[in-house]
Computed example of a mutant assay.
Amino acid sequence: MSCDKDDDNNEPQNTTIQQTQNTAQSGSWKITYYLDSDQNETNHFTGYTFTFNENGSLVAINGSTTITGTWSVTDSNSNDDDGGSSDTDFNIFFASPPDFEELSDDWDIISVTNSKIQLTDVSGGNGGTDFLTFEKI
C-alpha cells in the first residue's frame, strides 16, 4: 500500500474552494508581500486596492488608475505540488501592465484566514519560489 499526501486531507475539496472564494469576495485587499524569485517587489503594488468579484473579475484600483483581470479558485487535481498545503489553486490573470502580468499564475495556497491570503508558486523556468500575500483592508 502506498502512502499518498492526499490521504491526510479529510476535508472535502469543494468546501475548501468555496470557503476560499467566500473569503476573497468578503472585502477589499492589499498586497502586503510579493517576492518574485528572491526579489521583493511588494512596492510595485503600493496604494492598490484589490477586489475579488463574484463574477470572476479582479479589479485593482489606485486613485484614478483601474486595472482589471480575472481570478478563480480551482481544484488542480495534479501531482505537480509546488510546496503548497493543498491541491487547490488560486488563479490570477492580468493581461497588462507588466507588473501585474507578474501576478498571473496558478498559485498554491499556503493559508487563508478572514484577514490574510498567503500564496506561493515555484517558477517553472528558473525554479525560483514566489510568494504573494493579500491582507484585508
Rank of each mutant, 00 (worst) to 15 (best):
M1Q: 14
D6F: 10
D7Q: 10
D7I: 05
D7Y: 07
D8R: 13
N9E: 15
P12M: 07
N14H: 13
N14S: 14
T15Q: 15
T16I: 14
I17Q: 03
Q18H: 09
Q18D: 14
Q19R: 14
Q21G: 04
N22Q: 15
N22P: 00
T23A: 03
T23F: 07
S28G: 12
S28W: 01
W29Q: 00
W29G: 01
W29V: 02
K30F: 07
I31W: 07
I31A: 02
I31K: 05
I31C: 05
T32C: 00
T32K: 04
Y33C: 10
Y34S: 09
D38V: 04
D38A: 12
Q39R: 13
N40A: 03
E41F: 00
N43T: 14
N43K: 13
H44C: 14
H44N: 15
H44R: 15
F45V: 06
T46S: 15
G47E: 09
Y48L: 03
T49C: 00
T49I: 12
F50R: 02
F52V: 02
N53I: 02
N55R: 06
N55I: 05
G56P: 07
S57C: 04
S57Y: 03
S57N: 11
A60H: 05
A60D: 01
A60C: 01
A60Q: 01
S64W: 07
S64V: 09
S64I: 13
S64T: 14
S64N: 13
T65S: 11
T65C: 03
T66S: 11
T68M: 09
G69C: 00
W71H: 07
W71F: 02
D75V: 04
D75G: 11
S78C: 13
N79F: 12
D80P: 00
D82H: 12
D82M: 11
G83R: 04
S85H: 11
S85E: 15
S86L: 11
D89M: 08
F90G: 02
F90C: 00
F90R: 06
N91A: 09
F93Q: 11
F94L: 00
A95M: 08
A95F: 08
S96P: 07
P97Y: 06
P97K: 04
P97S: 01
P97H: 08
P98M: 07
P98V: 11
D99M: 00
F100E: 01
F100P: 01
E102Y: 10
L103M: 07
L103T: 04
D105S: 14
D106N: 14
D108G: 05
T113N: 03
T113R: 05
K116V: 14
K116S: 15
I117H: 04
I117P: 00
Q118D: 11
L119K: 06
T120R: 15
D121Q: 05
S123E: 12
G124M: 03
G125C: 10
G125F: 11
N126W: 10
G127Q: 03
G128S: 09
G128C: 06
G128Q: 06
T129F: 01
F131Q: 11
F131M: 06
F131Y: 14
L132K: 01
T133Q: 06
T133G: 09
T133A: 03
F134N: 05
F134W: 04
E135G: 01
K136S: 11
K136F: 03
I137M: 13
I137A: 08
